[in-house]
Design a protein around this nucleic acid. Sequence first.
RNA 1: GGUCCGUUCGUCUAGGGGUUAGGACACGUCCCUUUCACGGAUGAAACACGGGUUCGAUUCCCGUACGGACUACCA
Length: 500
Amino acid sequence: MSKNLRVRFAPSPTGALHIGGVRTALYNYLLAHKLGGTFILRIEDTDQTRFVEGAENYILDSLKWLGIMPDEGIGVGGPHAPYRQSERKELYKVYADELINSGKAYYAFDTSEELDAIRAVYESKGSAFQYNALTRVKLNNSLFMSAQQVHEIIASGTPYVIRLKVPAKAEIRFQDSIRDWVHVHTSSIDDKVLMKSDGMPTYHLANVVDDHIMEITHVIRGEEWLPSAPLHILLYQAFGWQPPQFAHLPLLLKPEGNGKLSKRDADLGGFPVFPLEWKDPQTGTVSKGFKQEGYLPAAMINFLAFLGWNPGTEQELFSLDELISAFSLDRINKAGAKFDVNKAKWFNEQYLKLQDVASLATQYLPDLPKKEAESFVHLFLDRITFPQELGEKVKEFTELPTNYEEAVVQNKWNEESQKGLQVLYDTLPMLELWEADSIKQFIQVKLEEAGIKMGKVMQMLRVALSGNGAGPDLMISMELWGEEQVLNRLKNALETFSKR
RNA sequence: GGUCCGUUCGUCUAGGGGUUAGGACACGUCCCUUUCACGGAUGAAACACGGGUUCGAUUCCCGUACGGACUACCA
């Protein structure tokens, strides 16, 4: 632990940042902050065909919203700039050449079409083609050409790729922080392309080179990278570098059935998979964001942290700082976690209740007088999941009831309740102090004087005033409606019901 | 197909050779509340299967089943 811990989050700017990627970023952030390390953001944009305008900013905005900004890299700069792989293009070429010169890699001239054709043949025979020690001897590459020949082909402008010469018989092993020892035989690893014919490196090369140059000590990434980890180890070995510590995170799975969580599942389940709203610049399709749905950043962080990790105690609510001190790689699970919206909502409700009433009031009920707005927040905070429901609730509350909950009317509308409501309508104007407690007292007294049991009337009063059989505290509601409004509503209800 | 990874309540998970297998979400019931929600209490609910090892296995090992990831000049 003498070396300073350095971790990175390295997304591709191919679209909106998926929630699984957000969790990966979070775990990297947590570990870095826990151990006084550095959290780096690097953009892996080596596939020019998949580049999407705005994706990089989206990633940055998302991390910013969640409060897990990098210490170094995109958006902040640092000693290893640039942090965008497309801007480091020349660098990878140098390292690829190094492998060529040391005989660890070779030029290959097979075209994509040729390889596709070979794959098709293998597939028709029920097997899969591998570009490896067995097949490379028969393919169009530099392995059995003279230096002169190779030079001529390349000089003539023939497109080429550079492939890693994977040893035929070796066992690759590494100790993953989450999965312990993983071993793979090199016979199952392809001679992967390191440099593409467009001069860009593939993920594998760029990733290994950058992680080494940027002195990354821990690679925390999704499980989808586990199968290529042995290849990466091979690359570190080929360069004579010390590999970082790997930690392959369990996948985030769809809520129903099995499989990786996808945008489609989210649409089906009616919840987002992206932190922020995303408009695809190509198709114009707009995808929902957790932020716009009303999820609080702290709730998202807490929820996400618990998808695949737990503190080992029974505490569930953790602030970001608490997560930092509780976090450790060895408490991460191996198995994938299904995404459960209900749990996400629950976390949001917990954090919503912790929010400052005054700021909720100004933010979500900006058109109301401060004091009134705050009263509404108090009234509804326990009954909502997302803050923007506040506006809907208030609107519903303020509007006159258009219909009355039938079941309640059926049951409770009778001579006694009718008389009760009439008494209240007649006497309420005499109440001096229009305030919840005195309203309650007053109603008690007046009904008692009239010989009517409160229980017979209250439910009906609620329906008369709000239209609904259930809702927030009726006395406080009456206070908020105000005397005139209450009387008006009572009058309307009495008229409507007496026609029955 | 091949390689790799995984499997405790419906879901997220704790635990780990001898436990009444614990918690949370969701669900049911009750209490609180003259309603509902919140809150509290409580209930139902799980060690994939088969072999081994062992006095004893859910826990360790091996198989099987099931699931997943990967298998591109994508990341």
